[in-house]
């Protein structure tokens, strides 16, 4: 097991490096640069800017010094657009926000989704099942960019219960709408996955055996059915968790949460190279890490899996 983990971590480094190189090249291949603007800068001004940010160097050297900055000083460079700030600062401000509402949304989505899915499977083809499936399909077809303005209209304008946006250091009232907007469609997917997998498990032999030896239904479900039923859900949860904690541009956009989801999209549109690469590396590293976590959890849940 330990060897397996070490091996996976060793592969992570070249993977990340490759990610950086490809992103870097793609970014520079896109037309325009950070200082391309409607009012074209005079050549002398542009030259000064390029010199200040090292953009006058050959591409390979920019790449090398960028990677070296990270390896040697954990310095992800300056933002070309938010010039008072470094990439480290932008991530340090935005990521905790994203991590907070992402984790809360994740927990909400998993708890509600699994509960909904399990109930639907147990009371298969009952009104509860139809209701659960109805809710999850409804939630899935309602994208968050539709839901966000609807939430805003309902809770802020009409009912006046919640502030319309901001973060205020993570005050719960500012978190309610972002969490609903972000968790709903994931909850729906988790519910449907859980339901399908639970239905399959419930008809399997070991459940029939458990029932035959006279175990109460609650024990059958919780002890014998839930664990194997969650296996396919688990493989969905790894990437989902990363997706949720690395931010939602829609949530940041509508609720001004100040997370990195919007910074990521903006940095690509603004050609803010260093910010874009910094967040790419963060997302890449988290993805690699949580995929590993999921694989380890797999072995724990399913004794048949050995590494």
């Amino acid at each position: 097991m330990i060897t397996y983990i070490l091996k996976r971590l060793a592969i992570a480094v070249p993977t990340l490096l490759l990610l950086v190189i490809i992103s870097f090249l793609l970014m520079h291949a896109a037309p325009g640069g950070p200082f391309t603007q409607e009012r074209q800068l005079p050549p002398a001004v542009l030259a000064n800017l390029n010199a200040k940010y090292g953009l006058d160097e050959p591409l390979w050297r920019q790449l090398v010094s960028y990677v070296w900055g990270i390896v040697a000083h954990f310095d992800f460079g300056p933002s070309f657009i938010y010039k008072d700030r470094t990439v480290n600062e932008i991530i340090a401000q935005g990521f905790p926000v994203t991590l907070t509402y992402g984790t809360v949304s994740f927990v909400v989505a998993v708890v509600l989704g699994v509960a909904l899915g399990v109930s639907a499977a147990i009371w298969h083809n009952s009104w509860l099942d139809y209701l659960a499936v109805g809710i999850s399909i409804g939630a899935q077809v309602l994208p968050n960019f539709v839901m966000a303005p609807l939430l805003l209209l309902t809770f802020t304008w009409w009912l006046g219960w919640l502030p319309g946006g901001g973060w205020e250091g993570g005050d719960w009232r500012y978190m309610v709408m972002p969490v609903i907007a972000l968790s709903t469609s994931f909850m729906a997917s988790i519910a449907r996955l859980t339901r399908a997998s639970m239905l399959e498990v419930l008809t399997s032999n070991h459940i029939r055996t458990a029932r035959a030896k006279g175990l109460p239904e609650s024990q059958v479900i919780l002890k014998h059915a839930l664990k194997p039923a969650l296996l396919p859900v688990l493989s969905y949860l790894g990437p989902t968790f990363v997706l949720m904690i690395t931010g939602s541009v829609v949530v940041d956009f509508y609720f001004s949460t100040g997370g990195i989801g919007k910074s990521f999209v903006d940095s690509a549109l603004n050609r803010d190279y260093a910010v874009m690469l910094g967040i790419t590396i963060l997302v890449g590293a988290l993805t690699i890490f949580f995929n590993l976590v999921v694989d380890i959890l797999y072995a724990w849940i399913d004794p048949k899996i050995r590494y």
Binding site: A148, P149, T156, G160, G164, D252, F253, Y254
Partner: peptide
């Protein structure tokens, strides 16, 4: 000064008195 990237969201919040 509040940053609100969506114009319609900003208008909603104006109408809500924010």
């Amino acid at each position: 000064a509040l940053t609100i990237n969506d114009q319609n969201a900003a208008l909603t919040r104006y109408l809500a008195g924010e």
